[in-house]
Nucleic acid binder design. Structure first.
Lengths: 145, 145
DNA sequence: TCGATACTTTAGATTATATCTAATTTGAAA
DNA sequence: TTTCAAATTAGATATAATCTAAAGTATCGA
């Protein structure tokens, strides 16, 4: 996504394209991992130190609300974010809490009617279990420390 | 789930059935909502004030790790928990963050091979969008306060 | 161009959430 | 019983997120 496209997507959501907001969006679109708010704060300010922490949180909230960014469950840990466009499912480890991507494939549409008056934007699968590393360990991490 | 069943499920996971751990499990199985750790702490101690906060967190972690309890994404907010057995999908509001249950229906099995060496325990759908209340509001909640 | 106005950002304080620590207690197997 | 790993505890600490009030900035109509 180039600069113009980012600008357009912000404006068509009714959000001003401020330098700080643009920086968050640009960072997320050029990123395939799931950075936390703190990581976004650091990365954005490393390039151009003009964003306060509150601004990062404000902008992330606005972007999620506008449907441009997805907030991924990190379950007890810090929330993680990714720009929409890259679709994938998620695998969450019950032991270490890690969130991993699972390649995207189409999920047969949700049964209509279940959603009532809600506005559905997207639908993904959450797999739960033990990640590869935790599956191969007998002893929980906390005992081995 | 009666007392004996809870005891058995704990022991078959290699967890001792302590009064504190039992209380957490019993509370969750008698609950259809998704309490946070703080709510569980309060509810359990209202009945019998014997659990410290650390114990609640320890036990929730152990129960999730054992696969008896599910930790539900609350996205930025406090983590929420429910006892497995009641299956449902989840709808997460991009505006207010609320997590709502969506009636369970079977999801056509995950494409095999995608999960590698991971141990899969379960799979649910996450719907994202705006909840009924937020869908009917033009103005975001923060501006109306 | 000039306000008026709503939107946005800011630093730092505050709140909320979760984990850690080291000492103590407990459960259940032998 | 005795024994010892497992579990619990209070309180301190760490981490994450939000709030506050003031200041800055873009946009619009006159």
């Amino acid at each position: 996504m180039d600069a113009e496209a980012i600008k357009r997507s912000l404006e068509s959501s009714g959000l001003r394209c401020t330098p700080q907001r643009y920086a968050v969006m640009a960072f997320l679109t050029g990123q395939s991992r799931h950075p936390t708010a703190a990581e976004i704060f650091e990365a954005v300010n490393r390039v151009d130190p003009r964003s306060s922490r509150a601004t990062i949180y404000n902008n992330l909230r606005d972007l999620v609300e506008a449907g441009l960014v997805r907030e991924v469950a990190a379950e007890g840990r810090a929330a993680r974010f990714d720009a929409k466009g890259t679709r994938h499912h998620h695998f969450i480890c019950d032991r270490c809490g890690k969130v991993e991507d699972v390649d995207w494939y189409d999920v047969s549409g949700p049964a209509p009617g279940y959603l009532g008056k809600r506005t559905l934007r997207e639908c993904e699968l959450i797999f739960r279990g033990l990640c590869a590393k935790c599956s191969s360990r007998r002893v929980p991490p906390r005992s081995s420390s």
